[in-house]
Design a protein around this nucleic acid. Structure first.
Lengths: 253, 253
DNA sequence: CACTAAATGTTATAATTTTAACATTAACGC
DNA sequence: GCGTTAATGTTAAAATTATAACATTTAGTG
C-alpha cells in the first residue's frame, strides 16, 4: 500500500509491456527486493499483472486472464459454442475469403481453420485478429480504425468501402438478438456499418447464433432475417423453430 | 505420437482459441483422460499449447511465451531499452496524438503512457495495438490491411492516405539501421510507406534507436537522418557521435 | 486366443510454489 | 532518542505441480 510498492509494480509492468512472462525470482532481482515483497505487492495492490504458477504475466493480455472454469454450466456452454462452430465449419471451403464478425461466438471456429491449406480472414475485431495471426496458413486482413473497447473492434467512416473492395466469399455474422419481426440486432452501433457492408458484399451470408438469442431484440438493428442465406444455430427445438421455422432463411445445419 | 493424442490437443487448442487459460485438471476432464496423459501429449507432440504452472495457455499468444530470462546480457539489454524509452517519454505531452512505429523498440514506452490523462496512439503494428488496447486512458487508432507476420504489422495500398488524414502530433519512428550517408533503413519494404507517411504528416518527428543500430544499413531505406527533428538514443559515446554528432539532426536527450 | 507393443492410468517421490508466522529493518512523529 | 507503525526479510510448513517408475488397459497381429 506504499508508493514504493506501486513503483515496483510500474517497473514490472514496463518489463512485461512488450508481452512475455517474468519469473518471480527475476522480478524480485529486478526490483532488489525479496520474492515475498513482490507477492505482497501483487496481492495488496491490484494491478494488471497476475501471477501464474510462479511467473508474472500481464493479466489483460488476450489468452491469459480469463481462466476457464469447468463447472456444469460453463461446460455445457462450452459444448454449445463448439457445436455451433463445428456446424459453421461445414460451410467453409479451401481457398475461401471469410468475413469473421466480432464477439466471442465465432472464436472457437478460428483454431479449426488451421486444418485448411489456404484461407483469408477479414475482420474488424482485435480478438479475432490475434487468434488468426497465430495461424500460419491463414492470411489476415484487419480493417482498422478507432478502437472500441466494449466490442474489442475497430470502426471508421470508410470501413464499409474497405469491405466492399474485398472479394469476400462468405460472411460469418454473429448477433446479440434475433427476432422474426424485428430482425437481427447487436449491442453497439459502430458494428452496424461493417456488418451491413459484409452482408452486402459477400457471396454467401451466414448468421451464426446460439438459440439463446432467439426472440431477443438489442439496440442496434442491422439486418432482416431473410438477408441471410443460412442460419447456423445449435438447436432446432420448439423454441428456435418458433422463430426460424417459418422464416424465409433456409435453416440448414 | 498417436492420432488420438493429436485429437486431444486439437480439442484443447479449440478450447483455448478464444484466449484464456485452462487448468490441467479441467483439460483432463474435458478429454476424459488423466492429467498425466495431457502432460504426455504436451511433451511428446510439440504444439502451440504450453503448460504454465499447471495451466494450459496458447504459447503463441502475445504475453505468454517469450519468457524473460534474466542473465547479464538480457538484463543490460533490458536496461538499455528502458533508458531509451524513458528519454522518448520526455517528449510526450498530455493530449498528444502519437504515431508509434512497429518493432520491439517502442514497446517499453507504451505502459508508461498510462500516466497521462488523454492520449491518442496511431499504429499499424499488432503488438503495439494489443499493448495500447489495455490502457483505458489512451485512444487507439489501428491502421489495418494485410497482416505481415514478420513485423507483426499491417500494410495496404492506401495506408499512407489514411495516415495523412490524421492529425499526428509526434511520430515516434524506429529503425534497424542508421547511417550518416546511407540514411535510415529497416528490414521490411512494407514498412516504408507508413513510416514515410508518418514522417511527412507529423508535426514533430522522433527517431528512436539504440546505439547498436549506428553504422548499419538494412535493405529498406525510408528516410534521411535530417528528416528527423530529434534523435533519441541511449548513449552519446564516441561511436554514436561519429554518426550523429556532425549530422543535421539536433541530438537532444 | 495369446502375444506384443503402444497408450494410458496409478502411485510414489521430488521439486516448486504458496501461505503463514514471526523477525528485522526502515520511516515517522513527538 | 524513543516508541510506534509500516514495510520488508526470513524461515518453516502446507499445497500444488512435475517427474519417474511401474501397473494396467487397449489395439492390433498371427
Amino acid at each position: 500500500m506504499n508508493g514504493r510498492s506501486a513503483q515496483r509494480l510500474a517497473k514490472l509492468q514496463e518489463a512485461l509491456a512488450s508481452g512475455g512472462t517474468l519469473h518471480l525470482r527475476d522480478a524480485a532481482e529486478l526490483c532488489n527486493v525479496s520474492e515475498m515483497t513482490i507477492r505482497r505487492d501483487l496481492t495488496t495492490q491490484k494491478s494488471a499483472i497476475s501471477l501464474l504458477g510462479g511467473r508474472l504475466v500481464m493479466a489483460n493480455y488476450p489468452g491469459v486472464t480469463p481462466i476457464y472454469d469447468l463447472n456444469e454450466q460453463q461446460a455445457s456452454h462450452y459444448q454449445a459454442k463448439h457445436r455451433l462452430c463445428r456446424r459453421a465449419l461445414g460451410y467453409i471451403q479451401e481457398g475461401d475469403t471469410l468475413f469473421i464478425d466480432c464477439g466471442s461466438t465465432l472464436m472457437p471456429l478460428l483454431s479449426q481453420l488451421s486444418h485448411f491449406h489456404e484461407l483469408t480472414v477479414v475482420t474488424y475485431a482485435l480478438n479475432v485478429a490475434n487468434a488468426v495471426a497465430a495461424l500460419p496458413n491463414v492470411r489476415l486482413v484487419l480493417l482498422g480504425g478507432l478502437f472500441y473497447p466494449a466490442s474489442q473492434s475497430f470502426g471508421s467512416d470508410n470501413i464499409a468501402a474497405a469491405i466492399e473492395r474485398l472479394g469476400i466469399n462468405k460472411a460469418l455474422i454473429s448477433a446479440a438478438g434475433v427476432d422474426l419481426e424485428r430482425g437481427v440486432s447487436c449491442f453497439h452501433f459502430h458494428e452496424v456499418a461493417p456488418k451491413q457492408a459484409a452482408i452486402a458484399t459477400a457471396m454467401q451470408r451466414l448468421l451464426v447464433v446460439d438459440a439463446s438469442k432467439f426472440g431477443v431484440v438489442r439496440p442496434a438493428y442491422f439486418a432482416a432475417l431473410d438477408d441471410f442465406d443460412v442460419v447456423v444455430t445449435d438447436e432446432e427445438g420448439a423454441h428456435s423453430s418458433q422463430y426460424l421455422g417459418c422464416g424465409n432463411a433456409p435453416l440448414l445445419s
